[in-house]
Design a protein around this nucleic acid. Sequence first.
DNA 1: TGGGCCGTGCTTTTT
DNA 2: GCACGGCCCA
Length: 837
Amino acid sequence: MSSYSDEDAFEAAAAPDARARPSLSQRAMAPPHVDYFEGLNPAQRQAVETLNGPVLMLAGAGTGKTKALTCRIAHLMATGGARPDEILAVTFTNKAAREMMNRIGGLTQGASDGMRWLGTFHAICVKLLRRHAELVGLKSNFTILDTDDQLRLLKQLIRASSIDEKRWPPRMLAGIIDGWKNKAWTPAQVPVGESSAYDDKGIDLYAAYQHRLKELNACDFGDLLLHMVTIFQTHADILATYQRWFKYILVDEYQDTNVAQYLWLRLLAQGHKNICCVGDDDQSIYGWRGAEVGNILLFEKDFPGAHVVRLEQNYRSTGHILGAAAGVIDANKDRLGKTLFTDGEDGEKVRLIGHWDGEEEARWIGEDIESMQRGTRGLDAMPLNSMAILVRASHQMRSFEDRFLTIGLPYRVIGGPRFYERMEIRDAMAYFRLAVSQDDDLAFERIVNTPKRGLGDKAVQTIQITARTNGVNLIEGARLCVSGGLIKGRGGNALRELVQGLDRWHATLHGQSQSQSNGVTRGDMADDDESVIDDGPTVEVFDGASNVNHVELAEVILDECGYTAHWQNEKTPEAPGRLENLKELVKALENFDSLQGFLEHISLIMDNAKDEEDDKVTIMTLHGAKGLEFPSVYLPGWEDGLFPSQRSMDESGLKGLEEERRLAYVGITRAEKHCTISFTSSRLVYGQWQSQMPSRFIDELPEENVEVLTPPGLYGGGFGAAGMSARANPVSEGIASTLHEKMAKADVYNSPGWRRLQSRSQQRSMSQPKESRNSVIDMKATSSFTTGERVFHQKFGYGEVMEIEGDKLLIEFDKAGEKKVVAKFIVSADKANDVPF
DNA sequence: TGGGCCGTGCTTTTT
DNA sequence: GCACGGCCCA
């Protein structure tokens, strides 16, 4: 397989492509006063026009950063600063790359077609690494392992080195290794202090893992970056080639870069220093996966004389929403500091409301959404599409789903397992991988007993040992096991059949590949470059005429191996969905010109386009919402421990808290017109009722931007808004009545009772960090009912307490009969009149 | 070899 | 309170 490791070959490979599109470059030379400059504010204009030298664009939420970035690229091409293929533009997600490509295309009437180096860090690194793979001991057709493959491999290695699996769970090891790779440390480069922290076992396993990856001709996601950094650091000539080739470098979401990405960028930009990084330190929310806010904070040190452009005019949100967001983020230290402003209206204040529990919160939000949909409070009716619920943790989604299903409110959940991560898709892909390459041992291990062929651990072990002692791949090993009679009986027969099938499919495919080789060439990196980097299915063209049908072959494989039948026979409720997914997978193949092409690209394109057409409320995590905007945003669960997450604070202290605060900032700034924050006074956590404190971030919301709502249907009216019920926190009783009138938030937080509560909870979390996750005021301690007491329940009406069992009460209801009810749903009969319904 | 039972541990997520 | 993984038994 050819690869380009020298300058001439690279220039030769890339240059003809640019020459092949003269019309594009002509168009690109259009005079600079084209319409993309219109509508840019002075800061944006500066960011677009300052082409040479390092530029740091600090772009706050909703300040038109993508606009500035895409205009800058259009401007670069228009002024002749660089040809489209000499611009390196890096994003983090395929989605961002796609959007950028589309928008540049719109600005330049298609000149973006020539932008072959616009893509994610990973996609660009794959492309580079395929050229230079041999320098790190790989072949150019290496496979990319995803998290699942990675874990299975690590598990094998842990077992093989007879290390205690309980002390070294594969997930933990994967985390450690990923962390090291994010820092661009090869096994030899991991500092002694780091490795000894893990008993030196970690470093040994890391080395063994890297060794095994090379044997498998594979690498994981982290390797894509790490290998390229290694190559750049050790081959000055190659680095120089690319430094010259990429005349301009642009980086989106710079605050999310990890050390490896940072080094990669710095190496490439070292020559001309024409690097423009766009980011917002206030939106750095991925520290836990290796992102270093420090990268953005230190930009000016790394690139002396850097132009710093601040985009501070916000075009998204109302004044009150920006004010609320500013109030929260101001509490963070070490910010580069931006002050967002808007020319727009103040709009509606951020609404703050407290509820009894998550169920109540979901009910209230559901009703509010319905009234917003109809049009309420003198507001125009809003489609469901324009509303989103953003949660801190995905388990919060359930109460909303439950509620919305009950009331028939259409919703869509973003997140969850992605299409190509589903078991059935990965199984099917393993078969395809084996058809492409019989050396893919990991794929073989995955499917050898899927569907069930009566080949268990023992049989697989026999195959592995046979393969290893003969120095062959697992398919060969299996063949030897069958012919040598090592695996007999039903399993043996099934294995023989499997091996025959794999041979047959492999032969069919490779017959095909020869006949098409004068069309789209495989393995020729020059031709590979023809495709745009963000080569999603829509970009690849299926050249039906010159190809034997790989789609049909895929169907044949799934039929013959028994996998389709396996799901047809399965009676579980999810089986039909899985069959549906398999069909979708086969359909997706149509967009690629070969099975190989599909597999090469698919590992990097794991996002699934969601049905954004239907009118549905969006439910997603705060992390998932970054970069999005909605006219109306609900932010439920603002309770200490949940948000900010206790774990975050325990593990990362102040750093963790500040990242949580940035997350709160991201959440608020997603809202255009309406933002509603809510919290509950008790929540079911791990099956236990916990009393919750309102989030400390609520404290940080400026009073003048917030309207505190009185939730309807709450006992005592205003308790909920203070985040407590009288029962749960008797100390708050004093403030409850004042809250009942207007509930000035500040009063709540200044009350002695509140202070006492807060310091008590802080003491707990300091003295017992482990238990602090459950550091709650136990309902038991505060439920003060007595047997025989007359009580009232919202659903069951009046009744009498028969028995008290911790926080549960056995109650004989007048109408509903005997029921066991959690105390918090109960109120004394004499207070029942306060309940407004 | 595969099914069932028990114990544990529990964010966020892209590539 | 649930889900997943390991272990044990048939």
